[in-house]
């Protein structure tokens, strides 16, 4: 047993804790003050329904298949008089189940029309697991919180 030289190492440790005792505490008191998340933080996915073309790529690429999309084709009046009537896909349902989502960001990445964005918002916890399913409207609401991308290191 190394009771020899008992004092130096122990005293050093006690000096460090004593120093810390008088240091300013870096704690952020969460509900009162908030850290601003970094712009790239993967908090919640926002949906731009205008851009979505119901191509289902996100739903297909999602590793745990937590995106549910339904849509139908709608006849659109021709853009020029006398032209052919166009069909346009309309989004009926776009749900993301955040109880399943693992925040990998693949859906945002594969979206060819930039309809999905990451927002760093994180305060959407719920009491029931079924309420973690965000529907189209709720996902659209997140769009306002999407930050501009950060400046880049060149």
């Amino acid at each position: 047993m190394t009771t020899r030289n008992m004092i130096p190492g122990l005293a050093k440790g006690m000096w460090i804790t004593l120093k810390t005792l008088f240091k300013r505490v870096p704690t952020v008191q969460y509900p009162l003050e908030k850290e601003i998340p970094v712009p790239r933080a993967r908090g919640v996915i926002a949906l731009d329904t205008e851009a979505c073309t119901v191509c289902m790529l996100c739903s297909r690429e999602c590793p745990d298949w937590c995106i549910y999309i339904e849509g139908h084709k709608e006849e659109q009046p021709p853009s020029k008089p006398g032209g052919r009537p166009r069909t346009r896909a309309t989004l009926d349902r776009f749900d993301i189940d955040y109880a399943l989502c693992m925040y990998c960001g693949i859906c945002v990445e594969v979206c060819p029309f930039d309809a999905l964005f990451w927002s760093p918002e994180f305060e959407y916890s719920e009491y029931g697991i079924s309420e973690m399913l965000h529907d189209k409207d709720r996902l659209t609401d997140w769009l306002a919180t999407v930050p501009d991308p950060p400046a880049l290191e060149s």
Binding site: D148, P149, L152, E153
Partner: peptide, 13 residues
């Protein structure tokens, strides 16, 4: 797409 909020993800400044 045409949106600008997604760009090349280099290191942030």
């Amino acid at each position: 797409g045409a949106q600008t909020k997604k760009v090349v993800q280099d290191l942030p400044q």
